[in-house]
Design a protein around this nucleic acid. Structure first.
Lengths: 333, 333
DNA sequence: CCCATAAATGTAAACGTTTAGATTTTTTCT
DNA sequence: AGAAAAAATCTAAACGTTTACATTTATGGG
């Protein structure tokens, strides 16, 4: 069977404590003893059991990460950044996708707590959840991208309002006055804040907000397609559409592609989040871009620091998106 | 501090064994006792420690999954499918990205073995690795997408040759005779097999294989861009390019987009793996499509079955790709 | 109502580690 | 060489579970 620390100790002719010391690089072991132990480990193909270690030490090198959708490139990038940092700290990430359902999110959290995760990286599905007080604050947590009520924790957010404000301003500067938005659920921070930035900008430039031009989707490509269609079927269709996430933008572009409308000629479009498609369009797609990997890195960094020093005050990092102007915003040439 | 099974037992006035029985739903507990225990668990906010459980029972509900790149939509989809099944079996997935480096792959495997993963889902970076005999067969494993020497395990692969054969055949049927390929490293199964399917088809149709038309990339978008450029700069450039993975296809399309060449008019293109961009091009991109999620599901299913029954013979499932013809393959209209 | 049997519950030893504290060995200084 | 100090090593109890086995309690037949 699998070799244990006892087998190693016996073969090396030392006690388990000494073996433990070399495994954990605690020093205080004579070089020759250390070599003997290492040889024994090699010979027995010994692999330490971190579970037993965690039980004994009451510490774990596990970080739980919960995102709505692992296949969404945004969250994939955030995970990628977070996981990189987590590994640098010699921790391991437990990843789960909630599929934006309450049940699964709670379930994932439970799983991660059962696994004694030392910290949680969470992009919550809903802005409030019953489980917050029961299990929300049992463990250091860092929220990413979306906020949540009642969480006593760190946060890495995006200045969504500014992102859509700048995009809207660009539209206006290019001459648009018929501005539409496809945003996400207003209960979610990104959905609401992105809408607010849009609204604020229209207000600042004294442009009237047409209620028909406000479309609420679900952050998936299907709704980008459907809502885009609805907008263009209006008696007075908008001349510009601001699409508030990557997947909905893809849906919207698909819809445009199958219609007779020409991007950048009949309709201006700006997307939220950069996508590989952006530079393959005619004209190239203007987008609000976010530092996705950096968000993950930052969140992981904050979380791991808090794990080491649990009593530091909560921090909220708000990152700035920036506009990448490529041409698709304008129809007036 | 955190409540333990002992605290629950004490509060409910029973022994830990009885509590353990209700946690694990083993039955043989009087309903009234069970209720008392459940009430105690609720009251103490008890969350079982699965690590301790694993140490005691010598079993874990953990599956390790190692893929080259988590951000590649193909692997994201495979993970998604695998994780779905893994959760259905009440297991949890530990995901890691090797970034196609040997060191990291070995490191990840070590980590997963340390965590006592009950099984491994692996898309190996290299077709042979030194660690295979040392740790490759310690635990039930299922290889996905890429094969590896000396692994005594299950496999879920793709009929790569058939995929590129069909694509090449379509090119030929559309009148192409100047056929180029951008494939991946020939040491990797996908790189080699996709090239072989291409070569075989040319041979079957008695078309000479121009050595200049064979370009070996690294499965990343940059090489799609560079190699595409190199192909089109030839004195006798090809009229058709078969791009052998999703990222290289994106790179290739970017290169085409920035050049004066028109897709579907000057150059036919077929990609391997479907991508969202495909239906946003003019003409739409023809691709070899694979059941990505299903590959993950199938692999997870096989792995979990093997965990339950370790002695069943090894199985290799070879899934078929299929061509989605959308127009970009033809330049003769 | 008693006994046999079945059902429910309890006891205690494992599981593979870590880690105080105790003990031994080595080094250093005189 | 011997004592004191420092370094290395060991002992054994914990960590929170599971689980075989022992014991108690309930059930049913006569």
């Amino acid at each position: 069977m699998k070799a244990t620390i006892r087998d190693v100790a016996k073969l090396a002719g030392v006690s388990v404590a000494t073996v433990s010391r070399v495994i954990n690089k605690l020093g205080g072991v004579r070089p020759e003893t250390e070599q003997r132990i290492e040889k024994a480990m090699e010979e027995l193909q010994y692999i330490p059991n971190v579970l037993a270690r965690s039980v004994a030490s009451k510490k774990t090198k596990l970080i739980g990460m919960i995102v709505p959708d692992v296949e969404n490139p945004f969250f994939a990038a955030v995970f990628s950044g977070a996981d990189k940092v987590v590994r640098e700290y010699a921790y391991t990430t437990l990843l789960g996708g909630s599929n934006d359902t309450y049940e699964r999110e709670e379930n994932l959290l439970q799983t991660m707590l059962e696994h004694q995760a030392s910290g949680i990286l969470l992009t919550p599905t809903f802005p409030k959840a019953k489980w917050v007080e029961r299990m929300g604050n049992r463990v250091p947590t860092c929220l990413i991208d979306r906020d949540m009520e009642g969480m006593n924790c760190d946060r890495v957010l995006i200045d969504n309002r500014r992102g859509t404000y700048e995009a809207t301003k660009l539209f206006i500067q290019k001459g648009h006055t018929q501005l539409a938005i496809i945003t996400g659920p207003l209960e979610s921070t990104p959905g609401r804040e992105r809408f607010e930035g849009f609204k604020q900008c229209l207000h600042d430039f004294s442009i009237e907000l047409n209620q028909d031009y406000i479309q609420i989707g679900d952050f998936h490509s299907g709704s980008g397609y459907q809502l885009g269609k609805r907008l263009l079927k209006l008696n007075h269709p908008p001349t510009a559409i601001l699409s508030c996430n990557n997947l909905m933008t893809i849906g919207l572009l698909e819809m445009i592609h199958t219609s007779s409308i020409r991007l950048g000629e009949d309709l201006g479009v700006i997307g939220f989040d950069d996508i590989p498609i952006a530079t393959l369009m005619h004209p190239n797609l203007t987008v609000v871009s976010r530092p996705m990997r950096e968000m993950g890195e930052c969140a992981a960094e904050m979380l791991l620091q808090r794990i080491q020093n649990p009593n530091q005050p909560n921090r909220t990092v708000i990152m700035s998106p920036h506009l990448i102007v490529r041409g698709s915003e304008s129809i007036f040439s």
